[in-house]
Simulated assay, not measured.
Amino acid sequence: MIIDLPSTTTSQVNKKMVELRETGGAVALGRVLTLVVVTGDGTEVEQAIDAANEASREHPCRVIVVARGARQAAPRLDAQIRIGGDAGASEVLVLRLYGALADEGAGSVVPLLLPDAPVVVWWPSDAPESPAKDPIGALAHRRITDSAAEEDPIAALQARLESYTDGDTDLAWTRLTTWRALLATALDLPPHEPVTSATVAGAPASPSTDLLAGWLAAYLDIPVRRLEHHGGPGMYSATLERPAGDIEIIRPDSKVGTLTQPGQPDRQVGLQRRELGDCLVEELRRLDPDEIYEATLHGLSDVVRGERESEAAEEGTG
């Protein structure tokens, strides 16, 4: 069921929600959190709602979509309530803000938050430089960005490093879960030797590749090289170098990878790029700070610094 409320107010939206609950019981109260999605007023709205609906099947929640429209228009709030089959296991409130309201979304969100429930804010793209200082981000226990969806993914990732606050995370990090699990599992098998160095390769504008380099640098305390591979988007390969033989994962087609390790036959592993809803489901499972992601950001800083020092040394000897 979809109910449109053009040129409305948040109090009228709340009143309509209560009315729906009292007359038909259509809006359930068993919600574990409020998910606020901040996006533009374009096609990305429906894509974000689809991902949120998918995530709601594991995490029943109230989804509030703040769709910021034209700033030049007269101040106006157009709302839409989606329940039942149009909202997955959640209830979806779409707030389309125009004019001066477009830059002031927090005031429209606060009256609609579920009482005594955690708040998670997700920017599918165009995240603020400092999510925790954003008026809507300041309301949240967790703040989810996606540097891969930004116009300049690497610059966006650098901004995440500089502005990191407990509760921040990035879907470029979530997409690495399978890669990290495979590498960690391979290290549990003999020969049990220390890794001396590592190399990761991926698209030049792949923040996930940068984050994998940072993770390896932070947790193995080794030098890591980050190489560019122009054959496709995202991660291409990861190599852990050891005296008895390297552990290597190569994914040439963004779908299936080959895992090579000493004493073991080559193995085909599923490494298809994860769907947006799947990544969102994973991030909604935790509301505490992600210390591993934080350490990875600092490890990435070390990798970048090491690359700059190597470049400077090469220029000095050239």
Results as ranks from 00 to 15, higher is better:
V304R: 12
V256P: 02
S163G: 04
V37M: 00
L187T: 09
L20N: 14
P75A: 10
E294R: 15
P223D: 02
E44G: 03
I144F: 08
R267V: 13
G263K: 06
H230A: 05
L157F: 03
G231C: 02
L259W: 01
H59P: 00
R286W: 10
L287K: 04
G25K: 15
E248I: 11
A184N: 04
G85C: 12
W123N: 07
L216I: 12
S7T: 07
S237L: 00
R225P: 04
T209V: 05
R251M: 05
A159M: 07
Q72G: 09
P190D: 13
Q264T: 13
T239L: 01
L161H: 10
E291Q: 15
L95F: 08
M235H: 01
T23L: 09
E22T: 15
E315S: 14
T174C: 05
A218C: 12
A203E: 04
P223N: 01
D146G: 08
S301G: 14
A73I: 08
L220C: 09
L33S: 05
L33K: 04
S163Y: 01
L113C: 07
V94P: 08
E104C: 07
L259A: 03
V13M: 03
E58A: 15
A106L: 04
L171H: 03
A156N: 09
W123M: 08
D41H: 13
L97H: 11
R286A: 15
A127M: 10
